[in-house]
Nucleic acid binder design. Structure first.
Length: 310
DNA sequence: GCTCGCCGGGCTAGTAACTA
DNA sequence: TAGTTACTAGCCCGGCGAGC
C-alpha cells in the first residue's frame, strides 16, 4: 500500500496495544479512503470456493513449524493481486527462505529422531498446468530435458529458456518450430483479446473474474502470468481439499505450502503408506509428477523419488 | 509576527530474498 | 515476465522553538 505508516507500525511494533494512543484516527481514515477509492467494491463476492481456501490455509497455519525447539507459525494472505497466497509471520517471509545460506537449517521435525521433514515438489509445474489447459501431452519424464532436446541446449539452459518464453513472450521462430510454444502463443493472444474486449478474464477453475479496472499497467504477458498463478493456486486448493481429509488420521502434518511444493513433518510411524497416499493424490494419476525429498532439517534434504518407483 | 534552522516523520525508490 | 515481505537510504516538508 502507498500509506507507509501501516507497514512501519506493523514492522516495528506489531505487538503494541492501544495504537490509537499513538496514531491519529485521521491517519486510519486516509488509509482506508485511499484503499476504497482505488478498488472496486461494487461487485458482490459470491464465490463460495474461497470459504474452503481460507479453511485449508488455516489448517496449514495451525500446525506450525518446529524451529529452535519451539513452534513458529506462518500466516497466509490469499487476497493478493495474483491470487497466489503470500506467506509471512514474525519477520520471516516463508516464501523467500534462502535455499543455500543455511536459513532453512533450524527447521526440523517435531517428532525428534522418529521424524523427518518431507517435501513434495511438482516438476515444471507451470509448464504442465498450461499444457493441461491446452490439452497438450507433455512427457511424464523431465519436461526440461524434453525441451532441452528440442532447443539443442543443456538442461539448465532449457529451464531458463522455457521460463523466458512462458513469461516474457514466445519469439516467432520458437512458436513456429516448437508446437507447444506455438499453442501457448496462440492462447496468450486469445486471452489478451478477450481481456481487451470484455475488460475482464475469468480464472480457469473457480471462474473468478479479474477486472481491468482493478489492474495497473496490464500487458499481454502480465495477464498470462496472472492467469497461470490463479490456475496454480486454484488447482492446489482443489488438491489440498481432496488430500487433507485423507491424511487427518495420521500423526504427520502438512506444515508449509510454497506454490509448487508442500512440506510435511513426517512421523516415521505413519510409514510409507502415508507418503504414497500424498504422492498419488498430488500427481493425479501421474499427470503432474512430483519429486520427493526428505531430511533431518529443511536445509539438508535428500532426493528419495526413486524409492517410490513402481 | 516574521524568519531561520533543526529535527524527525512521510514517502519513494531501491535491494535482496524467494516462487513459477 | 509477474508477485510478496523485510529492510535501507535519502529527499522533502511541516512542526516548533529561538531570535529579532
Amino acid at each position: 500500500e502507498n500509506n507507509n505508516y501501516v507497514s512501519f507500525w506493523d514492522y516495528k511494533f506489531n505487538s503494541q496495544k492501544n495504537l490509537n494512543d499513538y496514531i491519529p484516527l485521521l491517519k486510519h481514515y486516509e488509509y482506508i479512503k485511499e484503499y476504497m477509492d482505488k478498488n472496486n467494491f461494487n461487485e458482490k463476492f459470491e464465490n463460495s470456493k474461497y470459504d474452503y481456501v481460507t479453511k485449508i490455509l488455516y489448517s496449514i497455519e495451525k500446525n506450525g513449524l518446529l524451529k529452535n525447539n519451539k513452534l513458529v507459525y506462518t500466516q497466509y494472505n490469499n487476497f493478493t493481486s495474483t491470487g497466489r497466497p503470500s506467506n509471512r509471520f514474525g519477520g520471516i517471509n516463508f516464501a523467500a527462505l534462502n535455499k543455500t545460506d543455511g536459513s532453512r537449517k533450524p527447521y526440523v521435525s517435531r517428532f525428534g529422531d522418529k521424524g523427518k521433514l518431507v517435501e513434495f515438489d511438482y516438476d515444471a509445474y507451470h509448464l504442465r498446468l498450461i499444457a493441461d489447459v491446452l490439452d497438450y501431452d507433455l512427457p511424464t519424464t523431465s519436461v526440461h530435458e524434453h525441451f532441452a532436446e528440442q532447443y539443442g541446449v543443456t538442461y539448465s539452459e532449457s529451464k531458463m529458456l522455457s521460463f523466458k518464453y512462458l513469461y516474457g513472450g514466445v519469439p516467432y521462430d520458437i512458436g513456429k518450430s516448437i508446437e507447444f510454444f506455438g499453442k501457448v502463443k496462440e492462447f496468450v493472444k486469445k486471452l489478451w483479446k478477450f481481456y481487451r474486449t470484455n475488460k475482464y478474464i475469468e480464472s480457469y477453475i473457480y471462474r473468478k473474474k479479474i477486472y481491468s479496472n482493478n489492474m495497473n499497467e496490464m500487458n499481454r504477458d502480465k495477464l498470462f502470468n496472472y492467469f497461470i498463478q490463479n490456475l496454480e493456486t486454484e488447482r492446489n486448493m482443489e488438491v489440498l481439499n481432496n488430500l487433507l481429509p485423507r491424511i487427518e488420521k495420521y500423526e504427520s502434518k502438512l506444515i508449509l505450502y510454497s506454490y509448487d511444493s508442500f512440506l510435511f513433518d513426517f512421523n516415521i510411524g505413519d510409514d510409507l503408506e502415508y507418503l504414497q497416499t500424498i504422492k498419488s493424490i498430488l500427481e493425479q494419476n501421474g499427470k503432474f509428477p512430483v519429486k520427493v525429498s526428505w531430511g533431518n532439517n529443511y536445509h539438508e534434504m535428500q532426493d528419495i523419488t526413486e524409492k517410490f518407483a513402481v
